[in-house]
Design a protein around this nucleic acid. Structure first.
Length: 546
DNA sequence: GATCAAGCTGATGTTTTAAG
DNA sequence: CTTAAAACATCAGCTTGATC
């Protein structure tokens, strides 16, 4: 490893004038919180962890040991440390066996477009687009705008295969009626419905001109300009961004969907999509994975609600082992308070499910819940004390994240790795998920389907032959498809997974090393000092430039 | 090995509070 | 009054574990 690193400075470099001085990424700034320490070097926590909450607390401890204290805002030294850490983890991810290439993201989108065009030729060719009835589209790009808007909007809180199913439903509705069907899907049904409706509204503002709407979605504004433009048209634009921040018009669909994801799907990989996993990566780098504090107000609110409980309910809770003294809540230590709030939240969840079985509507249940007060109060405390911060708390944080990502990209580039923000985020995504899966002793959840896999499954289900799909991929010049799919894996006619279950055939082919993630066995006695090599500063796997 | 209940997951939009 | 930050509420679908 050392030899390869030394090679960076050997004679071969002196031929060409050096434009960027490589910033060292060999030394990992945060060796305890480094994902590679667990994924590559066998480091394990002393005790076996089970839940996300336990993993959060453990990783937070490790970060704080590395940092000495949390990084709560931008600073030159802190930012440089995070940027180097990020660059080191990206570099480690790229050389990890079974890893995706730097261009995995853009390749997957290319394949998705190609496969989508098997289902709907107008997505692939202008001639086919012009042939769509009612003159819906003038170009294939217009069809793509609609298809990817449908995909981005219906992506909230659903797994990829459901996402594609919903997106196709909406896209097909658009083909027939010229607008989306405002319909909710999943837990964020109201947001999804609102965004579908908003797309229709905006298309009407552009007189049904899809290309014009697409142009607007891709135009950069300041957040303030966009909010004002929205206001003039009766559209309230949310999103945690600072007023002066440059955003795309697609921000009208919200910070994740519109700020990043729609742009990424449309092939603009510059915006960073801050999702739950990137937030966890960030929390691990900054020592801010848990808020870890509750306010007096939060505790008072819970105490007040519990005081109002009837004897009967208190007895039922006691039968479930939930005991409390409302006047003494503030005397509990955080662990005890967290425990109580967890149990209260579970108690409510059981109540809610029981009432839902009796046919109670969600609206009624929500109203009842807020009337009771204690379930919400307990959940708020549980989240504050036990759940990782999965969403950036403010526009300022998002801006900070982007600036550090820019710096990390610069560091990577100086080491001969050119990529952009979306590719960096996609590269960090897999190891972050693997890290949490490994530390929580859960099989890594199968939420890693990609859009091309999901579309492939749909195409097969709808009767398109493997060969036809492959031909289209070839014809459209999509990269990285050779050998990705095994036609036999779907069986003789029907795909094996009628509802798109499972990872699809590509998962097994693409990332064979991940198949054995069960083989990670936590040694309960192992600790930092027991792991060979951990006394030395950990180093990122090195790589040759170019 | 089938069935069922409970636990966990994910990512906003809205409301409230604080700061400028 | 405007902007920013923090707090809060949200629920379908999947996995797991208990029980027969």
């Amino acid at each position: 490893m050392q030899a390869v690193v030394d090679g960076v400075d050997d004679g071969s470099r002196s031929v060409a004038p050096r434009r960027l001085r490589p910033v060292g990424i060999k030394r990992v700034p945060m060796k305890r919180a480094f994902a590679g320490a667990y994924l590559d070097q066998g480091r394990r926590p002393r005790r076996k962890l089970k839940t996300v909450s336990e993993v959060s607390r453990y990783l937070l401890q490790q970060s704080l040991l590395d940092l000495g204290g949390p990084l709560n805002g931008p600073s030159p030294e802190g930012d440089e440390k995070i940027a180097k850490m990020m660059a080191a983890e990206v570099a480690a991810a790229l050389v990890r066996p079974g890893s995706n290439s730097v261009h995995w993201y853009s390749d997957a989108i290319e394949r998705a477009i190609a496969i989508a065009s098997v289902l709907h030729p107008e997505i692939g060719s202008d001639a086919a687009a012009r042939a769509v009835p009612e003159g819906r589209f003038r170009t294939a790009d217009e069809a793509r705008i609609v298809f990817f808007a449908a995909t981005a909007i219906t992506s909230q809180n659903v797994v990829v295969r459901d996402n594609i199913r919903y997106a196709l439903e909406q896209y097909r509705h658009f083909l027939r009626h010229g607008c989306f069907l405002p319909k909710g899907y999943g837990a964020k049904a109201a947001s999804v419905r609102g965004n579908l409706d908003r797309f229709n509204q905006m298309l009407a503002i552009f007189d049904g001109d899809v290309a014009a709407l697409g142009g607007f979605l891709d135009t950069e504004f300041t957040m303030k300009e966009l909010r004002e433009a929205g206001k003039r048209n009766g559209i309230v634009i949310g999103g945690k961004e600072l007023a002066d921040e440059a955003v795309y018009g697609s921000m009208v669909f919200g910070p994740k969907i519109g700020g990043g994801f729609y742009q990424n799907l449309r092939g603009n990989l510059k915006p960073l999509t801050v999702d739950l996993w990137f937030s966890r990566t960030w929390g691990r780098y900054t020592g801010t994975l848990l808020r870890g504090e509750v306010t007096v107000k939060q505790v008072d609110r819970l105490a007040g609600a519990l005081r109002g409980l009837s004897e009967a309910v208190v007895d039922r809770m006691r039968e479930d082992g939930i005991e409390f003294e409302p006047d003494a809540l503030s005397a509990l230590d955080p662990a005890e308070l967290l425990d109580l709030c967890r149990n209260l939240a579970r108690f409510w969840e059981r109540m809610r499910k029981a009432m839902a079985r009796e046919g109670e509507t969600n609206d009624n249940l929500s109203a009842y819940k807020s009337k009771l007060e204690w379930p919400g109060a307990a959940e708020a405390i549980k989240q504050a004390l036990g759940d990782p911060v999965d969403v950036p708390s403010s526009g300022g944080t998002r801006k900070w994240m982007r600036s550090v990502v820019e710096r990390a990209l610069g560091i990577l580039e100086s080491n001969g790795i050119a990529m952009n923000a979306a590719e960096l985020q996609a590269t960090l995504w897999f190891p972050e998920k693997d890290l949490w899966g490994l530390l929580s002793n859960r099989p890594v959840l199968d939420r890693t389907d990609s859009y091309d896999d999901a579309l492939y499954a749909v195409a097969r289900r709808e009767g398109h032959a493997h060969e036809a799909i492959e031909d289209r991929l070839l014809a459209m010049g999509a990269h990285g498809f050779v050998g990705r799919w095994d036609p036999e894996a779907f069986g003789p006619g029907e795909p094996r997974s009628a509802e798109g279950d499972g990872a699809g055939p590509a998962a097994a082919l693409e990332r064979p090393e991940r198949e054995g993630s069960d083989e990670y066995v936590i040694d309960p006695d192992a600790d930092l000092d027991d792991v060979p090599g951990m006394q030395e500063p950990a180093s990122a796997p090195s790589f040759s430039p170019h």
